[in-house]
Amino acid sequence: MADTLIGPNITIDGEISGDAPITIEGTVKGRIAVDALVTVAENGVVEADVETPQIAVSGQVTGNIVATERVEIAAVGKMVGDIKAPRILIADGAGFKGHIDMDVE
């Protein structure tokens, strides 16, 4: 399945859902519920709550993330919001403000 690309000059205000990987280079506001990898590119801006198995953040995310597998914030990434996921990687140099819940059962 090919990635869905939200280009750098695109702004989406609403809800994105589906089961294909998505790469965000533009701006998304609202809610993202995707059953595949979500990638926020370096110039991508997300102002939304995100539900996904995996997310990789190199851009900016403002909102809460619930991931069933993994959250990764790259050194150039910035995130403001809460994270709930079993595996979380925050690279040296990344910006993060919020709470982390690594619910261990």
Rank of each mutant, 00 (worst) to 15 (best):
I73F: 09
P21E: 00
G95M: 10
T68P: 11
I90P: 01
P21Q: 00
E72S: 15
I65M: 06
V40I: 15
L89W: 06
V57A: 04
V61H: 01
A41S: 13
I100F: 00
V80S: 10
D103A: 14
I90G: 00
G95W: 10
I65A: 04
I55M: 11
K84P: 04
G14I: 13
A91N: 06
V40Y: 03
G81T: 03
N43E: 12
P86G: 05
E72P: 15
D35S: 15
G18P: 07
G59S: 06
E42V: 13
P86R: 00
A56R: 12
V66M: 02
F96S: 08
A33V: 05
A56E: 12
V34R: 04
G98H: 07
P86Y: 00
D3K: 15
A2I: 02
G63C: 15
E105F: 09
A85M: 05
P8T: 14
I10V: 13
D92H: 07
T62K: 15
T62H: 03
A33E: 01
N9L: 11
A91F: 03
E25R: 13
E72A: 14
E69V: 03
A33N: 06
M1F: 09
A85C: 01
T39F: 07
R70V: 02
A56M: 04
G63V: 03
V45I: 15
G59Y: 14
D103W: 09
A74T: 06
V104R: 13
V66W: 11
I73H: 05
E47F: 08
N43W: 03
A74P: 08
I16M: 08
M79W: 09
A75Q: 14
T68H: 10
G18A: 08
G77S: 05
S58N: 06
A41C: 05
N64R: 08
V45C: 14
V104P: 06
V38N: 09
M102C: 07
K97M: 11
V71H: 01
D49V: 01
K78W: 12
V46G: 08
A67I: 01
G63K: 13
I12Q: 13
K78F: 09
P21V: 00
A41H: 02
